[in-house]
Amino acid sequence: MTLLAFDYGTKNIGVAVGQSFIRIAHTLKVIKNKRSGAINWLKFSNLFNQWKPEKIIIGLPLQMDGSQQYTTILVKKFAFHIKKKFNINNIEFHDERLSTVEAKCILFSIGGWKKLQKSDINSLSASIILQSWFENNK
Rank of each mutant, 00 (worst) to 15 (best):
E96H: 05
I13W: 07
L47M: 05
D95S: 07
I22E: 15
S45Q: 11
G59C: 03
G59P: 01
W41A: 00
I58F: 09
T10D: 09
F21P: 00
I22C: 12
W41M: 00
T2F: 15
K115W: 00
F86R: 05
I110E: 14
L60C: 08
G111M: 07
K84M: 14
E135L: 07
A79K: 03
G18L: 05
Y70D: 12
L28W: 04
K32L: 06
A16I: 02
Y8V: 07
I129L: 02
K85L: 12
R23N: 15
V101L: 14
L107T: 13
K76S: 08
K55N: 02
K85N: 15
G18M: 08
G14R: 05
V101E: 14
S123L: 11
N137T: 14
L42F: 13
Q68C: 06
E96C: 05
E54S: 09
G37K: 01
S36A: 02
K138F: 14
M64E: 14
F86T: 11
N89P: 01
E54Q: 07
M64C: 09
E135T: 12
K85S: 13
A16E: 03
F134Q: 08
K76I: 08
L47G: 07
S99I: 02
W41F: 02
V15Y: 04
I82D: 13
Q19F: 11
S109C: 07
Q117W: 00
E102M: 06
K118P: 03
F48Y: 03
L124I: 06
N33P: 00
I88C: 09
Q50P: 04
N12Y: 14
N40Q: 13
I106N: 04
I56K: 01
